[in-house]
């Protein structure tokens, strides 16, 4: 089914191209958001990534799953964009960002959201490679094999990178986000 859409899209079928974008836009936007930290920036990145992907579709093996390839283009586009402009502006924006839903949600849900947000803040203290493997595996919920496909490495390499990244994340959390770390030392 997906292979058929991909084939039609690369032959210039606009409907197939749009269906393909709709199918993957949530994953692409979310990864772009995690990397850039800004919804508007993420929307631009997602658009740019899809335009690039649709143009490069004739070089893609349509029998392979599209999502890892799309996510790779997205990660590269987002990373380059973040380096080029707005890195520090976005960091500042995030610092003053207040979750508008906090006052109206149930306490447990609010607490969970706060912890997820704090986890993201902690992940963003890591280097780019650590961030990426954590985003793909845990935030985007990709399998080890899919993560390996996006990063163009072996599954074993993903496991070892994850292990190291989680270790470094634990260090950041222990030092700067002790509330997230509660209960660990018991």
């Amino acid at each position: 089914m997906e292979a058929d859409f991909n084939r039609r899209a690369r032959q210039g079928d606009d409907e197939a191209a749009e269906a393909l974008v709709r199918q993957h836009q949530e994953a692409v936007f979310r990864l772009a958001y995690l990397i850039t930290g800004d919804a508007h920036e993420a929307e631009d990145v997602a658009q740019e990534a899809f335009i690039a992907a649709l143009k490069a579709l004739d070089r893609f093996d349509t029998e392979r799953p599209l999502r890892p390839w799309l996510l790779r283009i997205t990660a590269n586009t987002a990373r380059n964009r973040r380096r080029a402009v707005g890195r520090y502006v976005n960091a500042l924006r995030r610092l003053v960002w207040v979750n508008p839903e906090q006052s109206s949600t149930a306490e447990a849900e609010t607490s969970q959201k706060w912890e997820s947000q704090a986890l993201w803040d902690a992940v963003r203290r890591l280097n780019d490679a650590d961030q990426e493997v954590i985003y793909l595996r845990y935030f985007m919920d990709l399998s080890i094999n899919e993560t390996a496909e996006v990063l163009k490495v072996e599954p074993g390499t993903v496991k070892s990178r994850l292990s190291r990244a989680l270790g470094r994340l634990r260090g950041v959390v222990a030092k700067d986000f002790p509330v997230l770390y509660e209960g660990r030392e018991a």
Binding site: L54, E101, L119, F139, D141
Partner: peptide
């Protein structure tokens, strides 16, 4: 790892915009 995974899955993303429309218009 389970704690990270669980919290990551609960992460509140902004609503996904209609990227497909923007891509269509640009194309």
């Amino acid at each position: 790892e389970m704690r990270v995974q669980e919290n990551a899955r609960q992460f509140a993303y902004p609503p996904t915009p209609d990227v497909a429309a923007r891509v269509r218009i640009q194309r």
